[in-house]
Write a protein that binds this DNA or RNA. Structure first.
Lengths: 356, 356
DNA sequence: AAGTCATATGAAATCGGTTTCATATAATCA
DNA sequence: TGATTATATGAAACCGATTTCATATGACTT
């Protein structure tokens, strides 16, 4: 009568071992101190024989915890994201949590749906690489004591742990470096800032730097909406006559790729015609020889997960922020040019990318 | 008395709306046909007011389905994997499934733990980029009617759907191309094959091709165990005196990166000193100008998820295999060289990578 | 010998939903 | 008009675990 395809339950184990569900449950929860040796062995055997695995579902229902951690990332294809995921995954696995991974595609509506879904799955905590909206939904989560750790980006009005970096400082450092290398005409090319704090901070830092230093009247910020307008912008920027050498500064690895491809297809050479530096440090930047501002994304992922798990373990301290270091990777795409000098004269004999 | 921090339950909704749990449940399950308009409205309001979201946990317990799909990938940092994830995620989201993502790190033991964990979470189905072991555990899953779809790699003795590519054909095509381009001394550099079907098939195809065509007595297969031995191998291979031009053929994007970095650090030039081609097509291959055998990983992810969901929807047909097309991306790293000619003479005026 | 305590176990309630079965009223039919 | 059917709802069992409370036995006190 018993369906052999059915997964065995605790009741099946109990019957097979000739004991009660209670005793089996004790066995499962490591409260074995009051279990007789013989009983212990019988349960062990029954579990083995039936290939029994307790249902996390049933377990979680009573215990009010799912051992599920949700993570919503903005773009799963971005190597920055991938590195983060690896970090969080490693930590979660170590602590016997499983990761529910969602890809918001930088779309606030999709993000909202995901928050809802994750809540329905009763996640124990959430790691969020946010689009910046959905504040109220997140506050509701918080009120239910589901800890949230923000990754890389802020949500207005949310006082929770955050793992990110000092965008203003990093932008200043990069720009300072570019200026010292002799580039005074700089284009900052970013994905649309929307409500994304990281992007906004970087653009603001860019503007203030330019204003403070009185460099780069020729400088500009460009938001990439589609590839063809990026092409137009870059063409115009590179062919512009300026007093000083020019550089393009991209806001993340995805934009870097787009920009590099655009530059390539326009027939420009890096760094002969245009220097290039970028936030993020995808593994290929080393091969191609592109200077970057690298933040250890893996470490960010690890820190965020550690933080969340600390909260789950009961840490009720004030929300904290963790900043990973940003390091400038100097490579061939930003060689030093004599100050005052214009393009087509660079001191490095190395090229980064070739055009057709 | 009621704890305001507690998540509302169906009972709370029922009380607030002045109806029974049953009626609320009907509302939730879209069996609204027999619900009076006024009742409907009251329930709607109660749900709104309480910000109620049904617990998937409780739901799944009775319904015996979790709306969770497990996916175990071998290396989450590999861009091939990332593209797959994007595909599966898109499909799963569309069908209201959530993805439990696990990273086995190509470690059979970790994979085994993950299978266990996923089973405990009562996943409705599994997408598996396998290490090749763990057959028995997977068969057990199958017996419990949890559908499994294999990605890219086989598990011995498992008759389930598989989404992959024709590795033998693809290897032949690539080698045939290299030979036509004038490279008769070819090194196939792969990650350790272990029990991974894809890798084994490719190596076998390499051997048979070499044997059949009577080319490349100078050819070799090298398994990358650590970076320094790769360096040694490449140095020896490139400096070897051979009658024909030489090429390195890497087995995936991760090895490609390692090889490119090694070649670069050895001071060799691509393709002047050594041609380069690879399985996988990471986005940067285009920028650097590396020829590849590209398989649409995104499409693989989509197909695998579609397949799994079809199974979940009741498709009980024979296991099928789906092969995505492999296309050869011809780029600057494998220029044509005159047959019989040796190195340092290549017809392209374009270089792929520069050494210091 | 009666009371106390440590050891070992089980019955039944519970978690938050779904589902089965029962029931009450109104509308339709013969 | 009495029987049938369609409409609208609820009580209680159930899913697979945990947890509370109860209980039985043997050992140890006093």
């Amino acid at each position: 009568m018993k369906d052999s395809r059915r997964r065995p339950t605790i009741a099946d184990v109990a019957k097979a071992a000739g004991v009660s569900k209670t005793t089996v449950s004790r066995f499962l929860s490591d409260q074995a101190e009051y279990i007789a040796e013989e009983t212990y062995r019988k349960i062990e055997q029954a579990i083995q024989g039936l290939n029994y695995e307790p249902s996390q579902m049933a377990r979680g229902l009573k215990a009010k915890q799912s051992r599920l951690i949700g993570i919503i990332v903005a773009d799963i294809a971005n190597p920055f994201t991938t590195a983060i995921l690896r970090g969080t995954e490693d930590v979660c696995h170590k602590h016997h949590y499983s990761l529910l991974v969602c890809n918001s595609d930088n779309d606030p509506t999709k993000e909202q749906n995901y928050i809802r879904t994750l809540r329905s799955h009763h996640i124990d905590g959430l790691i969020l690489h946010t689009t910046g909206y959905n504040q109220s939904m997140l506050l509701a989560l918080q009120k239910e004591k589901t800890p949230v750790v923000l990754l890389d980006r802020e949500v207005n009005g949310m006082h929770v742990d955050l793992v990110g970096m000092d965008n203003t400082q990093a932008t200043y450092d990069a720009l300072d470096y570019l200026v010292r290398q002799g580039y005074h005409s700089i284009a900052y090319v970013t994905a649309p800032t929307a409500d994304i704090s990281t992007r906004i901070e970087r653009v603001q830092a860019f503007h203030s730097f330019i204003a403070e230093r009185h460099v780069g009247e020729e400088s500009a910020v460009f938001q990439v909406v589609d590839d063809s307008s990026l092409l137009d912008f870059l063409q115009a920027f590179v062919s512009r006559k300026t007093a000083t050498a020019k550089a393009v500064f991209t806001g993340n690895a995805v934009i870097l790729l787009k920009a590099a491809l655009a530059i390539q297809s326009l027939g420009y050479r890096i760094p002969d015609d245009i220097a290039l530096i970028s936030f993020d440090d995808p593994d290929w930047a080393q091969i191609v020889g592109i200077s970057t501002i690298s933040q250890s994304a893996y470490e960010m992922g690890v820190t965020a997960a550690d933080r969340l798990i600390a909260r789950l373990a009961g840490d009720a301290g004030e929300p904290r922020r963790f900043y990973v270091a940003a390091t400038l990777q100097e490579r061939a795409s930003t060689p030093k040019v004599a100050t005052g000098q214009s393009m087509r004269t660079h001191s490095s004999n190395r090229q980064a990318i070739h055009s057709e």
